[in-house]
Nucleic acid binder design. Structure first.
Lengths: 363, 363
DNA sequence: AGCAACGTTGTGAACGTGAACGTAGCATGC
DNA sequence: GCATGCTACGTTCACGTTCACAACGTTGCT
């Protein structure tokens, strides 16, 4: 890329296959064969052609190639909720795998005002215009998941979500739903707290239109009931710290110590931050008086004061698998076995125990 | 997108312009005119053609169009450092503006192992194969900036960085460097602390191969000297909290109160977290004993304990401007004035004063 | 010698679109 | 009456590649 031998002192003219052919004294088809590594080219001509290619700084036209092969080597990625921490890692992994397999990733990032079915379909439509060969939808909210699944698209697609729509997805062949296993994640939190001796716990749910939040709440209800806990649920409309902060202040102000819950579980780390701050201001110590556990292990959670016990999903692995599934649908052969092999992929999150959770005072 | 009138019960055959033309009883050129909103089409034929287009679910082939117009409507975006908070917002803004102008964004995200010149050029090369019309480089580290600037590319490009390479960039026409104004940001931090009465301060620098870190350090040195502060600088190799935590413990353990600095400035919020945690464990109170100020206002900084005083750069505005600059280079007319108008764009960051900074004890 | 098989190369036609150009029809002007 | 201009189309070509097939020379076999 650094040496542009100034054979072309004029404007930046992009050489074509024919020019290469002429200059190398062969037909354009032979040049094509060299480019595509066809075995039926003699070593001599191959080298000659390759030299001309270097000289002219020739590169094949992707458009012309796509026109005849009908392969654009482009995958459309539509993401919502990327300002929250998790999805970003996933996206990085997706891109990395795509690039490793020679695919380009065309990206659309929806902001919160665009978390609608309309925006979703509009973007998908524009990607179809562009000619993407497949889709990856990062659909954190329910309306998006439905839009992603129901969109009338013939291209294969993977939908990343935590919601349970397996039934309806099964009816669409070529659609694969993949998501973090929130149930197991929630279970590990609850087991952890149970082992410490907690019985009276409060759960701060996330906004319920988000699949993650809904699944975590569901799992919470199920497991806390199983354990016959004295469990309470507080519904948040937001993922941010401010709402949980306000709510925690309101809930726990002036409550006698022995009537406080011994543990609080929030639906993400930001909410946990809000809760911790409220407790701090109320003179309630974490974890001595109340344990706090979050979700996601966002950057900074490890050096929060107190360091936050939380659950870290493997966002990277999620992204990688999603992309590999998709490539499997597209390529056909090599990945399909892989795909069948693990029907429920092991996206188990890891509980990270830090300072914010401990045995309750009176055990 | 939802109604696929089943006129084509067979495989998903993509209709061509000629089929539309035939069915509508016109020539393909007329169809082309309808698609491209040429004025020279009668209302009647236009409607007839549009109906056939809907019926056949026809969409123009981007490849064929790109082949003849030589416009792929695609912009390549190469980003490093996206796992850190700031760049993500920037990327979202970039994508949004691109989409608004009908451009697709092809994205490559480099992970830390790929922060090299080689990876950078390799990806740029693959984007050239794809046929992108322009580049946006998000180049947080010095080697990347150099790679981005020196790469032999005829397409226009914008490089997002905080380093000062204006001189060498000016020599390349068609390259525009844009970055957050770290100098002003640092100045606002120092003015804030000075106004509170601080004189003895410690600065935790970031990894110096990062432009942001280098600029912040430079500005720190300059302004703290101007104010004749008792200033000390500690060099960090990482942006993460762990290193600053260790260093702060080491630095401030067993120091008599009256010999401690009255304020600590870190190069980002994560480092500030680490410092605060160390101070907390050493029994040093923030802000009563020491004030702490960070950079970036990452999510959670507002509900840290104590809430962090920090500087919030306008990442969104940065991304928007970057994209508009680029479109200006490409489009030519409408944006060029805009580009000249503000040679140094006002990417002033905003100081957010929270709990972690206050007047020093003995003033 | 004749002929098949093979490896290497060339030829022509597609792919779907936009640009340049041509042309018919009709209204306007003198 | 005819030149002129405008509108609404059609025709032809070019974009740069791949694909199907043909053609060529060499080798090996009968």
């Amino acid at each position: 890329m650094n040496q542009e031998q100034g054979k072309n002192p004029h404007v930046s003219h992009r050489a074509s296959m024919n020019e290469v052919a002429e200059r190398a004294g062969v037909s354009h088809q032979t040049v094509s064969r060299v480019i595509n590594h066809s075995p039926n080219v003699s070593q001599a001509t191959r080298e000659r052609v390759e030299e001309v290619i270097r000289d002219l700084n020739y590169r094949p036209s992707n458009s012309a190639r796509a026109l005849v092969t009908r392969h654009t080597k482009t995958i459309g990625f539509i993401a919502g909720g990327v300002n929250y921490y998790g999805p970003i890692s996933t996206m990085g992994a997706i891109e990395s795998v795509a690039r490793d397999h020679g695919f380009y990733l065309s990206v659309a990032i929806l902001d919160e005002r665009e978390y609608t079915r309309e925006s979703f379909e509009e973007v998908a439509d524009s990607f179809l215009d562009q000619g993407v060969e497949a889709f990856i939808f990062l659909a954190p909210t329910l309306p998006m998941v439905e839009a992603a699944v129901s969109a009338n698209i013939s291209q294969p697609r993977v939908v990343l979500t935590s919601t349970q729509l397996e039934g309806s997805a099964a009816s669409h062949p070529g659609i694969k739903l993949i998501g973090i296993d929130q149930v197991t994640a929630a279970r590990s939190v609850i087991d952890h707290l149970a082992n410490l001796g907690h019985r009276r716990c409060v759960f701060f749910s996330g906004p319920q239109e988000w699949g993650d939040a809904a699944m975590r709440l569901r799992a919470w209800r199920r497991f806390s009931a199983e354990k016959r806990w004295d469990a309470q649920t507080v519904c948040m409309k937001s993922w941010d710290a401010s709402e949980s902060y306000e709510k925690a202040r309101e809930l726990f102000a002036g409550i006698p110590r022995d009537q406080l819950p011994t543990a609080i579980v929030t639906s993400n780390d930001l909410q946990a931050f809000g809760v911790c701050k409220a407790l701090d201001e109320l003179g309630i110590k974490v974890p001595e008086d109340i344990s706090v556990v979050g979700f996601d292990d966002m950057p900074g959670s490890d050096y929060y004061t107190p360091a936050l016990t939380t659950v870290r999903p493997d966002f990277d692995e999620l992204g990688r698998t999603a992309m590999q599934e998709l490539l499997g649908y597209m390529g056909g052969s090599e990945y399909s076995e892989y795909s069948k092999e693990q029907d429920k992929p092991p996206f188990t999150s890891h509980l990270i125990v830090r300072e914010s959770s401990a045995r309750p005072r009176a055990i």
